[in-house]
C-alpha cells in the first residue's frame, strides 16, 4: 500500500498534472495573491516541510486538510512570516517577502522589515490568542494604532465597524475573559481583518471551540469569502471545505498530496492517500 502511494506523492509535488491546474474559467486569475515555491523547513533534524508549492488567486478560498503533525501550522506560520524558511520563496502580489536574494544566496530580512510585510497578511490562530488585558474593541484597534499609526479616535470607529461586521458590535467593551470561545474567535478575525490584508490565513479556527459555537465562526468566514477575501483555511470541517472552498488540498508528510476542486476532491480523489484520509474523517 505504502509503495503505491509514494510515487504519486512525488509526481504531484514536483510536477502537478495539467488536470489539477485547470480551474473553472471564471476562477482563472490575473495574478496570484500568494505564491509558494519549494518551501522547506526542518526542526532539529526533523524535516517538517519538504518542498511545498502552490498558488492562490485573488478571491480564492483554499481549504487545507491533513493529519496531525503533517506540517500545516508550520506552513501557515512560514507564510505569515512568523518563522523563517530553510529554503524556498514566498511571493505576495508578485513580490518576494520574508527574504531576498543576495549574490545568489537567499537571505532572511531583518525583523523590522518582516514586521512591515506582516501587516499585509492576516493570521487567525486555533486558540484565538486575543490580548486578555484589552477589551474586544481595543484588541481590534491595537494594530491600527501601534502599527499603522492611526489616531485613537479613527481607529476606534474602524474597529467598531469591524466588530459590527462579525456581529459583536454590542460586545466591544467586554474583555476576552467575558466572551465565549466563538465570540473570541470572531474578535480575532476582526483584529486581523481591520488591517485590510491581501490574504487571510486560518489555522484550525474552530478546533478549540465547543461544537455549538463552531457555526457562528464558520458563518463569519463564509461571509468573508463572499466579499472576495483571499483565504487559506487549515481545517477539519469537511462541510465547510466542501461548501466554501474553491480548492481543497491534502497535506501530508510535509508535502501537498492532492489539490483539487471540492467536488472532485471529496467524490473522486486521485490519490490513495486522500481516499484513506477521507475514510477516516467521514
Amino acid at each position: 500500500m505504502k509503495t503505491a502511494v509514494e510515487p504519486a506523492q512525488e509526481s504531484t509535488v514536483t510536477d502537478p498534472s495539467p488536470r489539477e491546474q485547470t480551474l473553472p474559467a471564471h476562477a482563472i486569475p490575473a495574478q496570484p495573491v500568494l505564491q509558494v515555491r519549494d518551501l522547506h523547513k526542518t526542526y532539529n533534524g526533523n524535516a517538517v516541510l519538504k518542498g511545498v508549492e502552490f498558488d492562490i488567486a485573488r478571491g480564492q478560498v483554499k481549504a487545507v486538510l491533513g493529519p496531525s503533525g503533517s506540517g500545516k501550522s508550520t506552513m501557515l506560520r512560514l507564510m505569515a512570516l512568523l518563522e523563517t524558511a530553510d529554503a524556498g520563496e514566498i511571493l505576495l502580489n508578485g513580490t518576494r517577502i520574508g527574504g531576498r536574494t543576495h549574490r545568489g544566496h537567499s537571505v532572511h530580512l531583518p525583523e523590522r522589515q518582516l514586521a512591515m510585510q506582516r501587516q499585509d497578511i492576516g493570521m487567525v490562530f486555533q486558540r484565538f490568542n486575543l490580548f486578555p488585558h484589552l477589551t474586544a474593541v481595543r484588541n481590534v484597534m491595537l494594530g491600527l494604532t501601534s502599527v499603522k499609526g492611526i489616531s485613537h479616535h479613527d481607529a476606534r470607529s474602524q474597529a467598531m465597524d469591524m466588530l459590527a461586521k462579525v456581529g459583536l458590535g454590542n460586545r466591544a467593551d467586554h474583555f476576552p475573559s467575558e466572551l465565549s470561545g466563538g465570540q473570541q474567535q470572531r474578535v480575532a478575525i476582526a483584529r486581523a481583518l481591520v488591517l485590510n490584508p491581501s490574504v487571510m490565513l486560518f489555522d484550525e479556527p474552530t478546533s478549540a471551540l465547543d461544537p455549538e459555537l463552531v457555526g457562528e465562526v464558520l458563518e463569519v468566514m463564509e461571509r468573508l469569502a463572499e466579499t472576495g477575501m483571499t483565504m487559506i483555511v487549515v481545517t477539519h470541517e469537511v462541510r465547510f471545505a466542501r461548501r466554501v472552498a474553491n480548492e481543497v488540498t491534502l497535506f501530508d508528510g510535509g508535502v501537498i498530496v492532492e489539490q483539487a476542486e471540492p467536488e472532485q476532491f471529496f467524490t473522486n480523489p486521485q490519490h490513495e492517500r486522500t481516499r484513506k484520509f477521507l475514510s477516516h474523517v467521514h
Binding site: 505569515a80 512568523l82 525583523e111 523590522r112 514586521a115 512591515m116 510585510q117 506582516r118 501587516q119 497578511i121 492576516g122 493570521m123 490562530f125 490568542n129 486575543l130 490580548f131 491595537l142 494594530g143 501601534s146 502599527v147 480575532a188 483584529r191 486581523a192 488591517l195
Partner: peptide, 10 residues
Amino acid sequence: LAGRALGMSP
C-alpha cells in the same frame, strides 16, 4: 506571536 502577526515591532 499574535502581536507579531499584526506587524508590531519587537
